[in-house]
């Protein structure tokens, strides 16, 4: 199959799966914005402009086309802030999910492979404790103790997400381990490492990949929540949550400062969920049939 037919097949697929195309479109645009944020901002996001305080978006009466989405209470351009905010929020979510996958998978695979043994029990009790601890309390404790930098945010978010992966991966490893094809491989004389990597590993990626976009979506929301509560990303750094937090006092008179970032979060979350949904059906050979 050459590139051209692959491309046309791909286009056909997208035309058939409308919801996936929409989701993919949103995700790609978001990624594009996150990568090229610095060159996309029309104004310097942190520059104060006392002349244009609380400017509404351009389509509302009194708006200024130079500030498409208006300005905030101290006259900073909202669109530029939004672009930087997307970069920060999406970046943090992506890295937290990646590191939770890494930690969760490692622990899940080890635990599943050695089950039943004391090591499995220990790892699973740790997971249980982590899962049982109220997340907000944990976040407040950690983020007040250490400097709330993006890095510490990633750590907090990772702590909240990895146990789910560990659980899911462990149970799927255990199911795989008792399957006939793994037995067949053992009877052939395959080594433990080969079974873990080639036989069990190949089934793990398809379990993880469809969950990841949906998980990123939920972490985007959590991150915004932390920043909105002003324990997450701190000014002068910008995240979607603290833009909303900035507009909190003006919500009745100048709704757009809070509503627009909220709307952006919603769009990103919907996009990620649509993609995750489709991935789930494509990665399951049985569902496909």
């Amino acid at each position: 199959m050459n590139f051209k037919t692959k491309l046309s097949n791909g286009i056909k697929y997208l035309q058939k799966n409308k919801s996936f195309s929409i989701g993919l479109g949103i995700v790609l645009i978001t990624i594009f914005i996150a990568i090229f944020a610095d060159s996309l901002t029309p104004h310097v996001p942190s520059k104060l402009n006392p002349k244009f305080k609380l400017l509404p978006p351009f389509w509302v009466e009194g708006g200024n086309p130079k500030y498409i989405l208006g300005t905030d209470a101290i006259g900073r351009d909202l669109l530029s802030r939004l672009i930087k905010g997307i970069q920060m929020s999406v970046g943090i979510s992506l890295f937290s999910v990646l590191s939770s996958i890494l930690i969760g998978t490692t622990i899940g695979v080890i635990s599943g492979l050695v089950h039943p043994s004391w090591l499995d029990s220990v790892l699973m009790r740790i997971t249980d404790i982590q899962m049982g601890f109220p997340f907000i309390v944990l976040a407040i404790i950690i983020l007040t103790m250490v400097d709330p930098t993006p890095f510490s945010c990633i750590i907090v978010l990772t702590l909240s997400a990895w146990p789910t992966y560990a659980r899911v991966i462990r149970s799927s490893v255990m199911i795989e381990k008792s399957s006939d094809y793994v037995d067949a491989a053992k009877a052939m004389g395959a080594s433990r490492a080969r079974i873990a990597i080639k036989y069990i590993g190949r089934n793990l990626l398809p379990t993880i990949i469809p969950v990841a976009p949906m998980d990123i979506a939920s972490v985007v929301i959590t991150e915004s929540l932390l920043s909105f509560m002003q324990i997450g990303i701190q000014p002068p750094l910008i995240s979607l949550g603290n833009i909303m937090s900035d507009g909190r006092n003006y919500i009745s008179t100048h709704w757009w400062i809070t509503a627009i970032p909220g709307f952006v979060i919603m769009i990103i979350v919907i996009g990620l969920n649509l993609v995750g949904d489709t991935l789930q059906t494509t990665f399951d050979p049985k569902l496909k049939q």
């Binding site: 006939d180 094809y181 037995d183 067949a184 009877a187 190949r202 089934n203 049985k286």
Partner: peptide, 15 residues
């Protein structure tokens, strides 16, 4: 060599 009863289960679904 062993031949299993369940022909589907004995083969890795992604091989």
């Amino acid at each position: 060599q062993l031949i299993f009863q369940d022909s589907l289960g004995a083969l890795h679904p992604r091989f």
